[in-house]
Design a protein around this nucleic acid. Structure first.
Lengths: 114, 114
DNA sequence: CTGTATCCAGCCGGATACTG
DNA sequence: CAGTATCCGGCTGGATACAG
């Protein structure tokens, strides 16, 4: 989690404070791909640590980008899904992914709408 | 500077490894605004440390997003400017800024074309 | 399996001083 | 002013164990 900008009014700096760190972005990516369970995020190739994942989900929920829901097939466990506010970050992730695809050798597309 | 993704092929993860950390993004923002001198970056409201700034500029140059040039009015000092590759990140910064403007109270637009 | 809790090494970066 | 160098406190996050 990035350090908070000291009273910056820059929308870039403030947005980055909210979800601009690497792990948060990758969790958002997984949410866009349709993942919702703790274990699904854990399976991603970047291998996030369980405490880090819990931390990022908590922050995203606190920022209202993500909300939890009761999964009927998995009682006792939370499901995580994007809110409308969270979904509105999609153009950002798409812009970064498109740049990566165009500029970094060996990268492969993901983030199919689900 | 973020830790490198261990052989990830995700264009998002790889792009974030390149310029996805807070300070790097803010330096890019300043470049888009037209700043080119070390001292100009230092004056930004987020107050980057001089060693951190030097590090980020070096990384950006190494990644070919930025190049140095000889400033005729400031001999003995490097000027920094975006390369074409660096300029191509503009849609990313714009997407984040637009999100911040729309979703975070108290933020104000910048990144006027210069 | 879904998280929570600790431990702790390593890195990030702020402060500061210093050189050309 | 541009940039480098060093110190070092604090946070990040990997590893691991554990609970429900």
């Amino acid at each position: 989690m990035p350090a908070k900008s000291k009273r910056s009014v820059c929308p870039l700096a403030c947005a980055l404070d909210l979800f601009g760190d690497r792990w948060t972005m990758l969790v958002l990516r997984d949410l866009f791909v349709g993942k919702s369970q703790f274990g699904e995020f854990m399976k991603s190739p970047e291998h996030i640590a369980s405490n880090t994942l819990a931390d990022r989900l908590e922050r995203l929920v606190a920022a209202r980008l993500v909300e939890t829901f009761r999964s009927e097939e998995r009682p006792g466990a939370d499901g995580y899904r994007l809110t409308a506010k969270g979904s509105s970050t999609r153009p950002i992730l798409e812009a970064i992914m498109n740049w990566g695809l165009a500029n970094i050798r060996g990268t492969e597309a993901r983030l199919q709408p689900k």
